[in-house]
């Protein structure tokens, strides 16, 4: 059974590229274009992994991460933060809020796949 991954990003082109990449690798892919939508889809679809952009409308990635980690039912959901702001403070803030990994945009597709597989224990 293929792993289910949610891509949460408001940049359409980024979503398109990652979606294509992950589908090609055999993952089931869901998409959300803002924080609230991402949170709702995680609760409804229970993906194994969330690729979470930080700068999103309505609810930013940090808040979504915090909300997910506050829900014991979702403790098994892996979270990989994606951000265009590569500062150390942002990284540690994300990890401090309970994210499992962190990638800075722009990223290499190979590294992204490696990180995704690592987090999914593959």
């Amino acid at each position: 059974m293929s792993k289910k991954i949610l891509i949460a990003d408001d940049e359409q082109n980024i979503v398109i590229s990652i979606e294509f990449l992950l589908r090609r690798e055999g993952f089931a892919v869901l998409v959300a274009s803002d924080g609230e939508e991402a949170l709702a889809k995680v609760r409804a679809e229970r993906p194994d992994l969330v690729l979470l952009d930080v700068m999103m409308p309505k609810m930013n990635g940090f808040d979504v991460c915090q909300a997910l980690r506050a829900d014991p039912d979702l403790s098994s959901t892996r979270i990989l933060m994606l951000t265009a702001k590569g500062r150390d403070t942002e990284v540690s803030k994300g990890l401090g809020l309970g994210a499992d990994g962190y990638m800075t945009k722009p990223f290499s597709t190979k590294e992204l796949l490696a990180e995704v597989r690592k987090l999914l224990g593959m």
Binding site: I16, S17, L21, A84, K85, P106
Partner: peptide
């Protein structure tokens, strides 16, 4: 930086 990184991300990925 953020605004620059965003298109770069798409360009690199594609």
């Amino acid at each position: 930086t953020h605004e620059l990184r965003t298109p770069l991300t798409s360009i690199r990925a594609f």
